[in-house]
């Protein structure tokens, strides 16, 4: 027992990778997710690579505005008014992915800090937080987002804020329960015996130990948030001045949905595929951090 470990240095990482890569669907999910990320990065930094000159706007074609079916020139067809769907989707992914990331990570950071504080400090603060999150949980989040959106004004920025407000309580609850178990662990007791202050214990010991599960949760949530965000755009809740966004893009073909169903199906598929891929990936990550599943 005393002698192993010369090669042990990276053994944990290697084991983690093994666990992850043995799960084929998780790997497929990750590949698709990475494809979305790469697309978003290209659109941000060098859209010309994909033949796009201005990724901030859809390119209209009023010469031939009626949706065209998929063809060799337009692999996914076009939508009203004459927008090349493939190019439009490639452009829109950046916006949806970016905002969703912002929402989930923003919610996770706020939630984590509040959750840890509540669980560690306990007492009134904890009680207050739990009642507060109860209220959030009892209202459907789409309804809540719309309500907050009305209060803050309807724009992309206010929708991001609205959705962060809707999303952080989930993370607060989650990190709270994680913290409650971590704070009972012997290493926290050892830190107390070492004279560590409460702040040090919260941020040096507890926060880093809640991170892996929270990251998994982030990847699982990313799919839902993209859906909610696109839904709000689709129903026209976010006024859109031609910004490439998947929900808005789907809504453009709404008048033609019977004669040209691809106008709605392809943007919808782009959203679904993304949600599916992050879910598969998240499941694989969950296996990696769960010691019971890694024997």
């Amino acid at each position: 027992m005393e002698e192993r470990t010369e090669e042990g240095k990276y053994s944990n990482l290697i084991l983690s990778l093994k666990v992850f890569f043995s799960n084929r669907t998780a790997v497929a999910g990750m590949v698709i997710f990475l494809a979305y990320v790469v697309d978003a990065l290209i659109m941000q930094f060098d859209p010309r690579l994909l033949g796009v000159t201005n990724p901030n706007q859809f390119t209209y074609n009023f010469v031939n505005p009626v949706p065209q079916p998929p063809s060799s020139q337009y692999p996914l067809g076009t939508t009203y008014p004459g927008i090349n769907l493939l190019q439009a989707i490639l452009e829109a992914i950046r916006v949806d992915l970016g905002y969703s990331m912002l929402i989930v990570v923003g919610g996770a950071v706020i939630g984590a800090v509040v959750g840890i504080l509540a669980a560690y400090v306990g007492g009134y603060l904890d009680e207050l937080l739990m009642r507060f999150t109860d209220i959030f949980f009892s209202v459907p989040y789409l309804v809540l987002a719309i309500a907050v959106g009305f209060a803050l004004g309807r724009s992309f920025t206010s929708m991001v804020i609205a959705l962060i407000i809707v999303w952080w309580p989930i993370y607060a609850r989650y990190t709270r329960s994680l913290t409650l178990s971590i704070k009972e662990s012997v290493f926290v007791e050892a830190a107390k015996a070492a004279g560590a202050s409460m702040v040090r214990i919260m941020f040096k010991h507890i926060l880093p130990n809640t991170l892996p599960p929270v990251v998994v949760q982030i990847s699982l949530d990313l799919g839902s948030v993209v859906g909610v965000f696109a839904t709000l755009a689709f129903i026209g809740f976010i006024p859109n001045a031609n910004t490439p966004e998947l929900g808005y893009l789907a809504s453009l073909g709404l008048n033609y949905v019977q004669s040209a169903p691809w106008t709605v199906i392809f943007p919808g598929l782009a959203i679904t595929l993304f949600a599916l891929s992050v879910n598969l990936m998240g499941d694989g990550l969950r296996d990696v951090i769960d010691p019971r599943r890694r024997s």
Binding site: F187, E189, A190, A194, A196, H205
Partner: peptide
Amino acid sequence: MVFQDPYSSLDPRFRILDVIMEPMIS
């Protein structure tokens, strides 16, 4: 204090050096 179970008494996210330094720094 030295605790019973060395598998749970060391923070899994701390490097050994940081574990040993913790009482001195705190």
